[in-house]
Simulated scan of single mutants.
Amino acid sequence: MTATSFPESHGNVPEKPVTISEFGAQKALGILSQSGKENAGVRVFIKSGGCSGYQYGMAIDDRELDGDTIVHDRGVKLLVDHMSLSLLRGSEVDFVENMMGGGFTVNNPNATSSCGCGHSFRTDGAQSPDGEGSGGCASH
């Protein structure tokens, strides 16, 4: 299996499965430029856990793995693995600042509920994977 790539939008390009906001892109580009990794991007992924069943994760990654979907949006390369893509399709990565500081978040149209801290979510009718997800937000 090979990677699927979505270039920057110019005209009639298929809709990107994942995007990043303007502010999120500014923050990501700053972090990527300081990472010291050539051709690095932001890997966005889903893992089981969190108080709502699934938990978002993000990391700076300079590897493109088999099965990855690679999206170039607002100058940022977003990498999503095959397993996470169905739960992230249509999502937007954003950066939010508040009184507690700031951080990246995912605006996910597939999430039917999420915990108060905004790091975990559940999809419609989905059980928590492996019986996880009963803990509170402090368990992140």
Rank of each mutant, 00 (worst) to 15 (best):
R122S: 08
G116L: 15
G103S: 07
H82P: 02
H72E: 14
G136R: 05
E92R: 12
G103V: 08
N110Q: 06
L65K: 14
N108W: 00
V106K: 02
S113F: 01
S91Y: 03
D66Y: 02
S113Q: 08
F121W: 03
E92H: 00
M99R: 14
G135P: 00
R74P: 05
G101I: 10
N107D: 07
G118Y: 10
G131K: 00
V106N: 06
I70T: 07
I70F: 04
G131P: 01
L78T: 06
M100A: 15
G131E: 01
F95D: 07
R89T: 15
S120Q: 03
S128K: 11
Q127E: 13
G133Q: 01
D68H: 09
S134M: 12
S114P: 01
D68K: 03
S91V: 08
E92D: 01
G75W: 04
T112Y: 11
D124L: 10
G75S: 08
S114F: 13
R89F: 05
D94E: 09
T105Q: 14
Q127A: 13
D94L: 03
T69V: 09
D130F: 12
T69L: 04
Q127L: 12
N98V: 04
D94P: 00
T69D: 05
R89G: 06
V71A: 03
V71R: 00
L79P: 04
N98D: 15
L88E: 08
H82N: 12
E64S: 10
S91P: 06
H72F: 15
P129L: 04
S128R: 14
S134V: 11
C115K: 06
T123R: 11
G136F: 06
L79Y: 08
N98G: 15
H72W: 12
D66V: 02
G75R: 05
R122I: 00
G67P: 05
T105N: 09
S84D: 11
M100L: 13
C115G: 07
I70Y: 06
A126K: 00
P129R: 01
M99N: 14
E92W: 00
G103M: 08
S113M: 01
N108E: 02
G136C: 12
S128L: 09
A126P: 00
G67Q: 04
H119K: 12
D73T: 14
F121S: 04
